[in-house]
């Protein structure tokens, strides 16, 4: 049975972004493993497409499935990834220090440009959890950079979720 060529073309076009996302999930330290993850994810999606287990409505949904596959694989394979080298920028070191969920959510939204709903679908978590992880990730990276992480007290609305202090030894 033939797989829709439009879907396959979309996956092919998404490959550079998938590779970038996988490399960032590995925090720049495991390039070969990240490329392997990307290839395995694409092969998995291709095989499921052929077996008709996967019937995406369109190219964008196929792209989403590829990101879901990469994220699921990375959650298992990048647990023991080595830390980034000294030549990597500070943002990569901060990224490597984040928990996997926060790192994935931050990268999907900030680097890959997904919306909150799509990100929730990719990581398989409710939208509220995605927002919480995003908040913590940005706060942790801001703390690493020494920037102020709290909103000014002039905001009138009370905080729905008060931020816990993130204390981190950086040197």
């Amino acid at each position: 049975m033939r797989v829709n060529s439009e879907i396959l073309a979309a996956l092919s076009e998404a490959t550079p972004g998938l590779r970038r996302y996988a490399r960032a999930l590995g925090a720049g330290a495991a390039a070969a493993v990240a490329d392997g993850l990307t290839q395995s994810a694409l092969q998995s999606v291709g095989a499921r497409l052929f077996a008709r287990e996967l019937r995406p409505a369109g190219p964008e949904e196929a792209r989403l499935e590829a990101y879901i596959a990469v994220t699921a694989l990375a959650a298992r394979k990048l647990v023991d990834a080595p830390p980034p080298g000294p030549r990597h920028p500070a943002i990569v070191h901060g990224l490597a220090a984040l928990p996997f969920e926060e790192r994935a959510v931050l990268l999907l939204i900030s680097l890959e440009g997904f919306g909150y709903d799509a990100t929730a679908r990719i990581v398989g978590a409710p939208r509220e959890s995605v927002l919480a992880w995003l908040r913590r990730a940005r706060q942790a990276l801001a703390s690493d950079a020494g920037a102020p992480a709290e909103m000014t007290e002039t905001t009138d609305a009370p905080r729905a979720h008060p931020q816990a202090p993130h204390l981190r030894v950086v040197k």
């Binding site: 797989v3 396959l8 395995s40 092969q43 998995s44 291709g46 095989a47 052929f50 077996a51 394979k77």
Partner: peptide, 17 residues
């Protein structure tokens, strides 16, 4: 990768490899 997997009908592959 995706095209080859679909064309060769390899079936489910070991996704962790």
């Amino acid at each position: 990768a995706a095209t080859r997997a679909a064309a060769q009908s390899q079936g489910p592959i070991e996704t962790g490899a």
